[in-house]
């Protein structure tokens, strides 16, 4: 049985190593599916001022400003609810008219103009989230950071407070930096 065992094992290894399956590279799709889930979770830990919603059932708008890196990954959010508000996802390629949004995501492609965007949204009760480097330090509220193949986030509490948004302590506890 010893020899049998070894032969079987070797054959198995061979099949696996050589016969293998075509390798596929990691893709952005999975990265943004993960980021979409973060967006949804952030929304659950933020308290907007009452005037941000017309009523209890008014939709919570998650907007993508400029280029949309998510593909259809954000579709999974539609139909979900945060508190009593149904989530609605909008893509706003021109990045104008963001005022009714509750969450605005700014993709890396907007690196050139995100400062101008933030200036426009300044003091509005809109949660700004981005994966642009140093986003939170540059005046955004939540910056997504890639660390060792996982996603972490930094929070700029000062900016959020100025916008009258309350971020839950649970969220702050998990942030890598809070400023």
């Amino acid at each position: 049985m010893t020899t049998g065992a070894q032969i079987l094992l070797l054959v198995g290894l061979f099949v696996a190593l050589l016969g293998g399956v075509p390798s596929v590279q990691a893709n952005n799709e999975s990265e943004y599916r993960l980021k979409a889930a973060f967006l949804y979770n952030f929304a659950k830990f933020v308290e907007w001022p009452p005037e941000a919603f017309a009523n209890e059932e008014a939709p919570l708008l998650i907007c993508i400003a400029g280029a949309n890196p998510f593909g259809d990954a954000l579709d999974t959010l539609s139909g979900k609810t945060v508190a009593s508000h149904p989530v609605e996802v909008r893509h706003i390629p021109t990045a104008t008219g963001l005022e009714p949004c509750h969450v605005v995501f700014i993709g890396r492609a907007e690196q050139g103009r995100f400062q101008a965007l933030l200036a426009k949204l300044n003091h509005l009760p809109i949660l700004t989230v981005s994966d642009i480097d140093d986003f939170a330090r540059a005046g955004g509220m939540i910056g997504l950071v890639e660390a060792e193949q996982r996603i972490r986030f930094a929070v700029n509490l000062t900016v959020a407070r100025q916008a009258d948004l309350k971020l839950s302590s649970q969220l702050l506890k998990l942030a890598i930096t809070v400023q």
Binding site: S30, A37, Q149
Partner: peptide
């Protein structure tokens, strides 16, 4: 979510 690797998210 913080424990999900980007690569393995799918």
């Amino acid at each position: 979510l913080m424990n999900v690797e980007i690569f393995s998210a799918s």
